[in-house]
């Protein structure tokens, strides 16, 4: 018996049910699923061409090209999925959401470029934003890398310090007595409120911004690590002690693993706080990165660049978030079935 088979027998899943599910997913894609995406793109294209006299030719060109590309790629995928089942089930799953997203572009185009219902220059159309995205890609990439460097260094420091202080506060009574009040008083202050002080204290804007991000991450990580450690089920500790465990084993092999689900909640909270602090710190402090780019573009009233940067930011932050989810799923395999978030 191989391991997968054992696991499925253990979990009580009958292989027959898996097989039927496979065949259901394996059947051909319906006409609607196959053509929804290209038709939506075609619709966007038609709308845009209808109003294109109002937009500069370069914008229309790149927007139309994007729509042609979407149509082309989706037709190619429609052909490939006939021979490749994983792609087919992926398409079945993703098709509605993609269609909706593409149609949303059409609506955006109608509202802005079409009927000019929203005031310019604050609300440019999708073609203008796409154009900024393309023309300013060098600076945008550079800003993203700067943001990444700042985020990673701040998050890493906050994480490490937070884990250490959380473990100490959670495990040791005296440290909890002195540390907890400090944590409760200092922790809830938003990291961004320290900006004036940080700029005075620190030699470089990068260091002070990274420090602020670290502070923003440190609080939730410490809080949740400490509570996870101090709420370790006493019976796990008892069992370990009857097995001959010393203090090192109790801390590193019982209390910390038991606290990991809690620690991850702290990591997610810290990540959210770090995004916020990053953007604020960049726009007032370091003068680089996506946060700086947004306020710089706004200063020049180039709102299509603001939206371009927001799109990059959304992609960047959600990728980082997804990465953390993946790490969590990896680390918490033993919890499978009990995680619901």
């Amino acid at each position: 018996m191989n391991r997968a088979a054992i696991q499925s027998t253990l979990a009580g899943t009958e292989p027959e049910r898996d097989a039927t599910e496979l065949t259901r997913h394996g059947s051909t894609l319906s006409w609607r699923v196959q053509w929804a995406v290209p038709l939506a793109a075609l619709f966007d294209l038609a709308i845009h061409l209808l109003f294109s006299k109002r937009a500069p030719a370069v914008e229309t060109h790149s927007y139309s090209l994007l729509m042609y590309e979407i149509i082309g790629v989706s037709i190619v995928l429609n052909i490939v999925q006939r021979f490749w089942m994983p792609l087919r089930s992926w398409m079945r799953h993703m098709c509605p959401i993609f269609t909706a997203a593409i149609l949303l572009f059409g609506v955006w185009d109608v509202v802005t470029l079409g009927f000019q219902m929203l005031p310019l220059p604050y609300f440019p159309g999708p073609a203008a934003v796409l154009r900024s995205l393309i023309s300013d890609r060098g600076l945008l990439l550079d800003s993203t890398l700067h943001s990444l460097a700042l985020l990673v260094s701040g998050y890493a420091v906050g994480l490490l310090v937070g884990l250490v202080s959380g473990i100490c506060i959670g495990w040791s009574g005296p440290i909890r007595y002195w540390g907890m009040p400090l944590l409760k008083v200092v922790g809830p202050i938003p990291a961004t409120a320290w900006i004036p002080l940080a700029m005075v204290i620190s030699p470089s804007a990068f260091v002070s911004s990274a420090g602020l991000i670290a502070l923003a991450v440190w609080f939730p990580v410490t809080m949740l690590t400490a509570s996870g450690i101090s709420n370790t089920r006493a019976s796990y500790l008892d069992v370990a002690r009857t097995l001959g465990a010393g203090r090192t084993y109790l801390i590193f092999r019982v209390a910390i693993p038991a606290a990991v689900p809690n620690i991850f909640i702290g990591l997610f909270m810290g990540l959210g706080a770090s995004f916020l602090t990053l953007v604020v710190a960049e726009s007032v402090g370091v003068k680089s990165g996506l946060g700086w780019y947004v306020s710089w573009a706004q200063g020049w009233a180039e709102y299509s660049k603001v939206y371009a940067a927001l799109i990059i930011m959304a992609a960047f932050f959600s990728t980082v978030m997804t990465l953390l989810f993946k790490v969590r799923d990896r680390v918490l395999v033993w919890q499978k079935g009990t995680i619901k978030w």
Binding site: R233, S235, Y236, D238, V239, V254, P257, A258, V260, W334, Q335
Partner: peptide, 8 residues
């Protein structure tokens, strides 16, 4: 309660 360590 067997109290197995669930993470192992």
């Amino acid at each position: 309660d067997p109290n197995l360590f669930p993470w192992l």
